[in-house]
Design a binder for these strands. Structure first.
Lengths: 160, 160
DNA sequence: GCCCTAATTGATATATTGTATCGATCCCTT
DNA sequence: AAGGGATCGATACAATATATCAATTAGGGC
C-alpha cells in the first residue's frame, strides 16, 4: 500500500483510464489517493470521511461506491468481502498481468495482511474448484485467521 | 446439508447443548431445522422468513441473529462472510474433531458449493499464514469463483 | 411445590453497508 | 455551438447487523 510511490501509481492509473476511455476526475483522484495512502483496508464510508477530512470537499458515500465499482473493473483496487473493506491493488503500476493476491484477515480485529502463496497451493485450489464445476476462481483469495496481537491478548475463538 | 439425517443431526445438537449447559429451545430448534433442510446458504432474514412460513410462529430477525451467534460458538453452523449467509455444518453429528471446510462461492449468483481440499494445499495456506504472523487460520475457507452456469450464461467478469 | 437466579426472549431503536433512480452538469466530438 | 454520452448530486430505500433493556421462562436448591 505505501510501499509503492504515490506519483507513480497515480500517473499509471491516469494512463490506464485514458487507454480505457474513462476520465480520471477529481473525485476519482481523491478516492484513489486515500486508498494509496491508507495503511489499512477502509470501508466505503471511511473513504468518504477521509476525503472530507482536510478540505472543503463534500464526497458523498454514493459517489465513493460508484468510484469503487469502477476501480474494481479497472483492477485498481480489491474488495475484501470478508471485511467489507477496500484496498489499493499493489500492482497498478506494473505492466505485467494482474497477479494473484491473497489477504489474511484477522477474525477479531479485522487487521489485513497481504501474503504471497506458493504456486502449488494456488494450483491445488484451482483444481479443486474446477472439479466442483467452478470454471474460474477469483485471482484474489481471502483467508480468515487470527493475527499475532489478538492471539496474544485474549482467548476468544475465531468464529468459524 | 441434506445428505445427513435430520433426526440424527437434531439429537446430536441437543446432546451437545446439554453438555455445554445451554438449552435447545423451540426457537433454536426452528432455526437449526431450517438450516438442515435448506439446500442453499441462507441469510439471517431468509431464515426468519422460513421459520415463519408455515406456522403461526413469529420469529424476529433479532432472535435469528442471537441464535446464529450461539450456533457459531457451538460449531453447529458456518457463516459465509463473502456471501453474508449461513450454512449448517456438515459435521454436527460427527464425534471426531471439527473438520476443515472449504466453500466455493460464485461471485455472480452467490451459489455455494462445499469442497474438500487436499491436505497439502491446506498446509501451504497454514504455512503462509504463520509466516505473516497469523498464528491460526480459520478451519473454514471461502473461495470466490464463478460457477459453471454463470460462466456459460454471460461474460461479465468476476469482481476481483 | 415455591422461590431465586440465570438464561432466554421480546421489543424497539439504531448503525452499517450497499443499491436504485433520476435529473443536472460536465466535457468531448462533430 | 450543439448533441450526446459520461459523470455527478441528491434522495430514497434495501439489506445486514448490533445495542439495549425490560419481560418471560426454565432449572436447581429449599
Amino acid at each position: 500500500m505505501s510501499m509503492v510511490d504515490y506519483e507513480t501509481v497515480m500517473s499509471a492509473a491516469e494512463q490506464k483510464c485514458i487507454q480505457g476511455g474513462i476520465r480520471f476526475t477529481k473525485r476519482r483522484k481523491q478516492v484513489l489517493s486515500v486508498l494509496i495512502e491508507a495503511d489499512v483496508a477502509l470501508s466505503a464510508y471511511e473513504i468518504a470521511e477521509r476525503c472530507n477530512a482536510d478540505s472543503d470537499s463534500n464526497m458523498p458515500a454514493m459517489s465513493v461506491y460508484r468510484i469503487l465499482d469502477l476501480f474494481q473493473e479497472q483492477n485498481f483496487i480489491h474488495k475484501l468481502e470478508i471485511a467489507n473493506k477496500y484496498v489499493c491493488c499493489s500492482h497498478i503500476s506494473c505492466s505485467h498481468e494482474h497477479d494473484e493476491s491473497q489477504f489474511l484477515i484477522c477474525g477479531s480485529c479485522r487487521h489485513v495482511e497481504e501474503i504471497n502463496l506458493c504456486e502449488d497451493a494456488v494450483k491445488a485450489l484451482q483444481t479443486a474448484a474446477s472439479a466442483a464445476g467452478f470454471s474460474a476462481i477469483s485471482p484474489q483469495l481471502e483467508i480468515k485467521g487470527r493475527c499475532a496481537q489478538c492471539e496474544q491478548s485474549e482467548g476468544k475463538a475465531v468464529t468459524s
